[in-house]
Amino acid sequence: MGAVIQVQDLKKTYGSVHAVDGVSFEVNQGELFGILGPNGAGKTTTLEIIEGLREADGGTVELLGERPWPRNSRLLPRIGVQLQASAFFERLTAREQIHTFASLYGVPARRGDEMLEQVALTDKVDTRTEKLSGGQMQRLSIACTLVHDPEIVFLDEPTAALDPQARRNLWDLLGTLNDSGRTVILTTHYMDEAEVLCDRVAIMDHGKILDLDTPTALTRGLDAATHISVTADSLDLEVASALAGVEDAAYDGDSLVLSTRRPAPVLAALAERDALDGLQVRGATLEDVFLTLTGREYRA
């Protein structure tokens, strides 16, 4: 389970903008690693340097023990890069697309058919790509990326521009990508996506990595308050504020929200008063982590 991606002090400057400013991290084999940050944080540039599409101004990248820049043809068959949904040949059907990519990687066409099955596109094989929905295109794109069974898969914002339903459908597929020991590295600007999918998350802003850990460790280490909400008429505001452990209480629409760092006694006290109608407990999220790290609201 060694590191398959090693990034050391990576730097890339465009004019006076430090797009990537001293980024270092390692990704282990079989890991699903996420880079989370708002647009313009430097995620895509970092990924492109690791893939070998751009040359770094400083620092080193090793991918499976090799340098990806300049274009390293030994590395290309071992990695799979998913760019965006539209990177297809014009006017070909889903099956023709994946057969084309299979052939370019020297893989039998049968393998392409299997991949279409795996991403649940068997009923769309004869549909031209332009006629597929956004989610279907994205799944075909991922299938084309996986057709040669790469050891490392790069996904740049795989769910951007999809509706919430299609995003959640895609999560099921993305979550299985590293099942067979494959390493996956993805960028996203969705907090919930990083939280659900990634084994480890690097939070990035202004070209720097602010923190890097498992989503649970990131939120747990935060010492952020847990928010407990019940229906507004369950309890008086004064009574709620006076409960042991409650730091703050306020109405939010038709809910009463209690903030606490010791949820157990608060919940017990609420149960005692039979005030658990509409109960919701929300722990700290990556959004709170981002807020703490940067001192400002997350802007996706």
Binding site: L53, L76, V81, S86, A87, F88, F89, F101, L104, Y105
Partner: peptide, 17 residues
């Protein structure tokens, strides 16, 4: 132009082609 716009050109650059 189309292959550059749709990033197909980049996709092929990342393939052993």
């Amino acid at each position: 132009v189309q292959w550059r716009t749709t990033k197909l050109l980049r996709r092929l650059r990342l393939a052993p082609v």
